[in-house]
């Protein structure tokens, strides 16, 4: 996973709430067995509408998505994160996320920042007034800066450290393999064994 410290980019204002993962990438794109190349599926139903914000050339090349509350609810499909990453997004900003999507994003180096609704609305206004507005997302300082304003965000120390170091969870866990083996030694006898 790529290390994340500070990211600066322009933003797309997605003025919608409850953007579920079926909207981020419809199920038909989930039939693939690869891990890359999902950018064509990103918001594919909505992108058929020429007035959809992602079709506005003013926002071409943006790497920060600013969305309404309950972003990424619903299905556990990690494809939603892959599609956002593959399209070129590095950061999503929303007041609230679906839990599974949030977990997936932080494992894939897509920083999902939680800011209050008022901050999101200010960012929407700034970006709509000037699509070239630079949004600076500073993970070290846990701060978003844009248009001369700044907003602090929360992310627990462990998750932040892992993102900043670009660490793979499996490698971290396998450092504790002895503890896993020890635990397995005293699981109850009536436990289910499939095979």
């Amino acid at each position: 996973m790529e290390k994340f410290t500070v990211h600066t980019g322009t933003a797309v204002p997605l003025r919608r709430s409850n953007v579920d993962t079926d909207q981020i990438i419809p199920a038909v794109y989930l039939k693939r067995v690869t891990r890359t190349g999902f950018e064509d599926g990103l918001f594919s139903a909505w992108r058929e509408d020429p007035s959809f914000v992602l079709n506005n050339p003013a926002y071409a090349g943006a790497s920060v998505l600013v969305a309404g509350p309950e972003f990424g609810t619903g299905s556990s499909r990690e494809h939603a994160v892959w599609a956002l990453n593959d399209y070129g997004f590095r950061v999503v900003i929303s007041p609230r996320y679906g839990d599974i999507f949030r977990g997936n994003s932080l494992k894939q180096g897509l920083l999902t920042v939680e800011l209050p609704q008022a901050a999101v609305e200010t960012l929407w206004d700034l970006v709509e007034a000037d699509p070239a507005t630079a949004i600076e997302v500073d993970l070290a300082a846990r701060e978003v800066r844009a248009g001369g304003q700044s907003w602090a965000f929360e992310l627990d120390d462990f998750l932040r450290w892992r993102l900043m170091e670009g660490l793979d969870d499996i490698g971290l866990t396998l450092r504790h393999e002895e503890a896993i083996t020890a635990f397995e030694g005293h699981r109850p006898a009536f436990g289910v064994l499939v095979g």
């Binding site: 556990s76 990690e78 599974i100 997936n104 894939q108 627990d156 499996i170 866990t173 396998l174 393999e177």
Partner: peptide, 20 residues
Amino acid sequence: FGIGTSEVEHVLATQTLPQA
């Protein structure tokens, strides 16, 4: 609970998950 594909890989490899 439901998990993403990175976590599926994690459970396949370690039979554990880091969880808050």
